[in-house]
């Protein structure tokens, strides 16, 4: 009687452990399958993006690799000349010379040194034809998202008398201090490229602002991931957008954001 009850208990224990084992295996397989499907479709979307870029590029043009840098230089100047034909401020980014500048009618009105930058692997794998189809002519900014207001305009109600007017002046003077803002902005370019600009003045400052900047980036990435999931749930490949991330001094990042008109032209050299 005693032995039998011990056997029953052991059986129960073994069953439970087997259950855990089965669960671990099945759950592990489900997770691995989901991850693999997600990775496969996500990576597939990058390859699709490159194929699309190839199909839209002028593949008939033969490009000698030894002349590629000269052709890029020519495209860079031609594109800036096209920008100069417009009356509005344009943005010129030269990753080769680490400069970002505002141009108006061909005149460089502001220039800033790029402290650091990173580009998607997509750009490193472009051939000449894809390069010129993407950067041979000016791009257009279609959408701005930023941590600071692009065109701040405060509404002030007119004072009723001179006493209220004097009080308003005092309040304005008190408010007029230098704001310590976290400047991070991202734009969507018309050839389906994301351009991210972050304002960083020093390493120490960058550390304290890292979290805020990352928060902004994370929020944006999360939106991309949700969109990717939606695509995958509908048995479609997610949309991949290659990115360029540039770090410049904070005041310059702010000045450039505020100077750019609604749909400005952008010339990029990589």
């Amino acid at each position: 009687m005693k032995e039998s009850s011990t056997d029953d208990f052991d059986v129960l224990f073994v069953k439970k452990r087997t259950g855990v084992k089965y669960f671990a295996i099945i759950f592990g397989l489900i997770i691995l399958t989901l991850t693999s499907v997600y990775a496969y479709l996500s990576i597939g979307s990058v390859r699709d993006r490159m194929e699309l870029a190839h199909s839209t590029a002028d593949a008939t043009m033969q490009i000698n690799p030894s002349l590629l840098n000269l052709l890029k230089e020519k495209a860079w100047i031609e594109s800036r000349l096209q920008m100069a034909s417009r009356d509005s401020i344009g943005l010129a980014i030269d990753l080769e010379r680490h400069t970002i500048q505002l141009e108006l009618k061909g005149v460089v009105i502001m220039s800033s040194k790029i402290r650091d930058y990173s580009t998607s692997g997509f750009f490193k794998k472009m051939d000449g034809n894809v390069y010129f189809s993407m950067f041979g002519t000016p791009l257009t900014i279609e959408k701005f998202i930023s941590t600071i207001e692009k065109n701040p305009l405060r509404v002030v109600h007119a004072p009723k008398d001179t006493i209220a007017a004097a009080a308003a002046i005092d309040a304005a003077i008190k408010k007029d201090s230098l704001l310590d803002e976290n400047v991070f902005w991202t734009v969507k370019l018309d050839r389906d490229i994301d351009l991210d600009i972050q304002g960083i003045d020093s390493v120490a400052e960058a550390k304290s602002k890292y979290k805020l900047g990352k928060g902004f980036e994370f929020e944006r990435n999360l939106k991309n991931i949700i969109s990717s999931f939606e695509h995958i749930m509908n048995f479609k490949k997610p949309v991949y957008t290659p990115e360029i991330l540039i770090s410049i001094p904070e005041n310059d990042a702010k000045a450039i954001l505020r100077a750019l008109p609604r749909k400005p032209l952008v010339t990029i050299r990589i």
Partner: peptide
């Protein structure tokens, strides 16, 4: 996966090799 997407590993080399 996003890091892999941004790397060059997922893309075959497409750099022009023509010397014409």
């Amino acid at each position: 996966i996003p890091a892999l997407q941004e790397s060059t590993l997922v893309l075959p080399s497409m750099i022009e090799v023509s010397s014409n």
